[in-house]
Structures are given as C-alpha cells and as structure tokens.
Design a protein around this nucleic acid. Sequence first.
DNA 1: GCGACGCGGTTTGAATACAAAATACAGATG
DNA 2: CATCTGTATTTTGTATTCAAACCGCGTCGC
Lengths: 226, 226
Amino acid sequence: MNRPEAQLLRPIERVPLRASLVDALRQMIVEGSLKPGEKINERALCESFGVSRTPFREAINLLAAEGLVAVTPHRGAAVTPITLDELEEVFPVLCALEALTGELAAQKASDAEIGAIERLHGEMLAHYEARDRAAYFRLNEAIHGALYEAAGNPTLTRTALSLGFRLRRARYQANLTETRWTAAVTEHEAFTAALKARNAGLLARLLREHLENKLRAVRMALLEEA
Amino acid sequence: MNRPEAQLLRPIERVPLRASLVDALRQMIVEGSLKPGEKINERALCESFGVSRTPFREAINLLAAEGLVAVTPHRGAAVTPITLDELEEVFPVLCALEALTGELAAQKASDAEIGAIERLHGEMLAHYEARDRAAYFRLNEAIHGALYEAAGNPTLTRTALSLGFRLRRARYQANLTETRWTAAVTEHEAFTAALKARNAGLLARLLREHLENKLRAVRMALLEEA
DNA sequence: GCGACGCGGTTTGAATACAAAATACAGATG
DNA sequence: CATCTGTATTTTGTATTCAAACCGCGTCGC
C-alpha cells in the first residue's frame, strides 16, 4: 500500500458554494467594497460571482446571522451600517470573550504554541519598525488567531471571530495613528510576556485592555468623522 | 381617518418560512424529538412541514451556524451529539456572557424592569412550592430572558441565547433533582436581591455561579447515564 | 467463501421556474 | 399643479427541476 505521505494524503477539501460566497462577501464587507448601509443587489452580485441565487441567498442568510447584513422580508438585504451604538453594543461582549481567551490560553497553551506566538510577535515587531502597515496587520491577526487557537475552545473562537468582523470593519476605515500604533505594540509586548509567564489573570486583563484601547481609538476616529 | 388604536395599528408580522422552520427545528432538537446524533432527513421533514427543500435547507444552515446541527458536504445534516466535551466547551463561554449580563443588567435595568423580574420571581416561587415543573421552567426562562432584556444589549442576548440552546438541550434530558431544584431557587432568591440592590459585581458573580451549579448538575447526570 | 468492483436508487447541491410582494411610474382626478 | 390610484416592472420568496455525489446491494473474480 501507499505509505502516508503526510502532506499528500489528507482529505481533499470540498467547499460548498455557499461557504465560498460567505467568505467572499464577508471580505467585501469588512474591507468596505460593500459599504455600510448599502443595499445588496442579488441579481447583480450573483451575476458577477457566476452563481445562481440559491447558494447566494444561503450565504446572505448566514451573514445576517453573523450581524453583518440585515434582511428585511420582501425588501432585501443591506449591509448593516456602522454606528457608534452598534460598536458600543458589540464591544463589551467581545471584551468578555477576549478576557476569557486570555485566561484559557494562559492555562492551556502548549509550550510550542507559546513559542510560536512569541515568534509571531517578533516578526510583527520587525514590521512595526519597518512601518509596514499591511504586514503588521497580517501578523497582528495571526497572533490573535493563535491565541484563540491556544485557548483550545472552538466555540469561543467561532463566537469571537464572528463578532470580531463587525469591529474589524470599523477599524479598517479608521486608520491607525502613529501614537496608537506604538501603544498597541507596547501592549502586545506586555501580554506576550504574560502568556509566557502563564499568568492567566494578568493575560486576561491585558487582552481586555488592549481591546478597550483599540475601541477607544476607533470610537474617536468615528466621532471625528461625523 | 382612523385614530391610532395603539394595539391594532402596529405592523403586522410577516414571518419567512425559513424563520418558522428554524424555530420549529430548534425546538424539536432542544426537546429531543430530534435526538442527538440523529441524521436529518430533508425530504421526510420537508414533507411533514409541508414546505419545499429550499427554505428548509436555509433553516438547516442557520442551525448549523448555531452549532445545533452539523452538515457534512454531500452527506447531509445530523443533530450534533451531546458530549461532555461539547458541554465543557460551551460552558465557559456562556458563563462569561452570563456574568456580563449580570453586570450590565444591574447598571442599566429600569426600575420597572427590576419590578417585573421580582414579580416573575415571586410567581416562580409559587410554582416551586406547588412542585409544578413545567410552569417553573417557563418562569425560569422568562426570568433569564428578562435579565438579558434588562442588560439592553441585543448582541449579547442573541449570542447568549444561541449558545444557551446547546446547553438547554442537555439540561432537558437531565432532569432536575429535588436537591438541585431547591438550591436553584435559593440562588434565584439571591441574585434577584442583588439586582434589586443594583450590585453589579455581585449579580455578575451570582449569575455565573448559578450557571456553574447548573452545569455541575447536568454534568453529573450525563456521567451517571454513561 | 471472501472481498473488490460496478450498478441503480437515493440524497444532496445548484440552477431554473414560478408566485407573491414591493417599487416605480404614468394617468386620472380634484 | 399636486395628489392619489392603478398598472407595469423589478425584486424577493418558494417550488421544482436537473446534475452530481453517496450508499447499499448484487455479481464477479479469486
């Protein structure tokens, strides 16, 4: 028989159209190609994706459950607008989840996982020094993703990510000031250390504060815009 | 013109099939008519609901997002089995949300809302004394629902409810012992008082503990069964 | 007799078709 | 001229159809 080639023998992935559509649409919403408040034109989008309405509508309904779009019966779907109220609503929930993530991660992360996160943190620092925003963001997301992973609770991960999209969308348009950027890096420094020390209470607190600060920045940007 | 009759002039509700189906299926799953692990037969269920597969499938996908069913591509959907692991996974997340609910409710509830909850609590007590399980459960849910309402955060409510279904299903089959029942009533007594006193920290702690105790009971019942 | 293979029925995924509701628009009416 | 009303068009909700993947069973080869 053929020996397990490790890389080649894994199950080939089959993605239902609806899943790809959810991802594509979500990205469009988070990045702002579909603007907040904008009405979603089924026919046009189906056309450009080259799919029929059935899987497309399935995707829309899933995004509605996530809170990224709002569907009104017989009147179609629209991207949920970003309001300060919405932000203040999502925020405390995500905050609680972030704190929990810290607590669990400090307790349950393997040494390897901690090492990996430290490495990611190092890379991120380099991008910060080089003022490479895009790369910095990528690493930033990777780190937070790795923390969820380390907490070892898929339900927590799914819930937090789903809420996170709603914030990330706001963060995306409110771009990072230099001051905030530096502060964020310092905060990362601190909680990476807390993780390494496996100090659950501290990590939880630092992650919560990190998120709080991020919100504060986004909130200011939103206010200033209006 | 016709004067606003207050009650009669509100928008008439129009429920898409998919929404009704989500509710119906969820209830079947929570109550156990659809047993954990059981495969979901699209055609048969569509037939008995008298709907076509399109809205039915939309409903299934939504329940999958909620974690009540698992769909495997080309192999259909099945009710997610209740495992101890799953319980332990959902639990901490819900716990964090419950604590947050307590905190917010203590801060933001109107006096009227607090009064209403106290009234519900009184009613529940009566049902407890009369050993009327069904009525007790109904009031119990009403109280927790009112707490979410009082916290005034729809996102929190939605998230917590959605996770709650997964636990409630387990609780449903592990039936309340006399000891646990009495303890639960005492706990309710305590947190109702904390709410009245608007003691946010205390209410958060009590709600968390209430949930912890509930889980402990369910966990024991599950273990004993296996 | 045992296991691999292939075939048919069944079930799922996606597209199309049809029905119902909403919007847009034009004509009627005051 | 403004407003209202009725009709046409578009859009949404649901049903039906078509295609692809899966499962069970029988047959064939060893």
